[in-house]
Simulated assay, not measured.
Amino acid sequence: MRIGELAERTGISRRLLRYYEEQQLITPGRSFNGYREYQEAHVGRVLQIKGLLDAGLPTRVIGQILPCLDKPRSIYFDDPTPEMVAMLEREHDHLTKRIDCLTRNRDSIADYLETVRGIRAVVESPRRVG
């Protein structure tokens, strides 16, 4: 498939797909005329990259762990360096803090919605005079 179809199927812009290629996160083939050619597997890979970026991981970290994510839950490095372990620990801590913050925000919004819905129900309910 060409870059336009991949962009449409993943919701990722062509420009961002080219950026993923520059960062060596994806590697398309090339057709005889030089056009990028993507395989079906690129759809899942691009969505995986987007999920990792949305989670807050930088592309340099994604580039290091992406080769290990081909199978679910099978992240393994043959010879992790102390620097890589420290970097992954920092990223783990950063994600944990983001998740905590997002959870607090979600819960606050839920509380607010519950209050607003309760007020609206009281205001919209017909009053009975007895």
Rank of each mutant, 00 (worst) to 15 (best):
residue 50 K to V: 04
residue 64 Q to V: 14
residue 113 L to C: 08
residue 103 T to L: 05
residue 45 R to S: 06
residue 106 R to L: 10
residue 57 L to G: 00
residue 14 R to N: 13
residue 123 V to M: 15
residue 19 Y to R: 09
residue 83 E to I: 05
residue 20 Y to T: 02
residue 42 H to L: 06
residue 17 L to W: 01
residue 47 L to A: 00
residue 70 D to G: 15
residue 98 R to S: 13
residue 53 L to H: 00
residue 76 Y to N: 11
residue 56 G to W: 10
residue 77 F to N: 09
residue 76 Y to H: 15
residue 16 L to Y: 00
residue 83 E to N: 07
residue 75 I to P: 00
residue 54 D to G: 02
residue 33 N to M: 04
residue 128 R to P: 05
residue 15 R to Q: 12
residue 113 L to V: 06
residue 71 K to H: 11
residue 35 Y to F: 13
residue 49 I to R: 00
residue 95 L to S: 05
residue 111 D to Q: 12
residue 41 A to Q: 14
residue 100 D to Q: 13
residue 95 L to P: 00
residue 31 S to Y: 00
residue 125 S to E: 15
residue 116 V to D: 04
residue 97 K to Y: 07
residue 18 R to G: 01
residue 61 V to G: 01
residue 32 F to K: 13
residue 85 V to F: 05
residue 86 A to V: 03
residue 43 V to C: 01
residue 22 E to F: 05
residue 106 R to D: 06
residue 109 I to M: 13
residue 113 L to K: 11
residue 81 T to K: 08
residue 79 D to K: 13
residue 16 L to T: 13
residue 37 E to F: 01
residue 78 D to C: 08
residue 87 M to K: 09
residue 23 Q to I: 07
residue 85 V to L: 15
residue 13 S to K: 03
residue 5 E to A: 07
residue 59 T to H: 10
residue 118 G to K: 14
residue 84 M to S: 02
residue 29 G to W: 08
residue 26 I to T: 01
residue 58 P to V: 10
residue 64 Q to Y: 01
residue 112 Y to P: 00
residue 24 Q to L: 11
residue 66 L to D: 04
residue 107 D to M: 09
residue 13 S to Y: 01
residue 14 R to T: 14
residue 54 D to Y: 00
residue 111 D to L: 13
residue 88 L to E: 03
residue 110 A to I: 04
residue 8 E to L: 11
residue 60 R to K: 13
residue 95 L to T: 03
residue 5 E to C: 07
residue 103 T to C: 02
residue 104 R to K: 14
residue 97 K to G: 09
residue 31 S to C: 07
residue 46 V to D: 01
residue 68 C to G: 11
residue 67 P to W: 07
residue 81 T to S: 15
residue 85 V to N: 03
residue 125 S to Y: 06
residue 106 R to W: 06
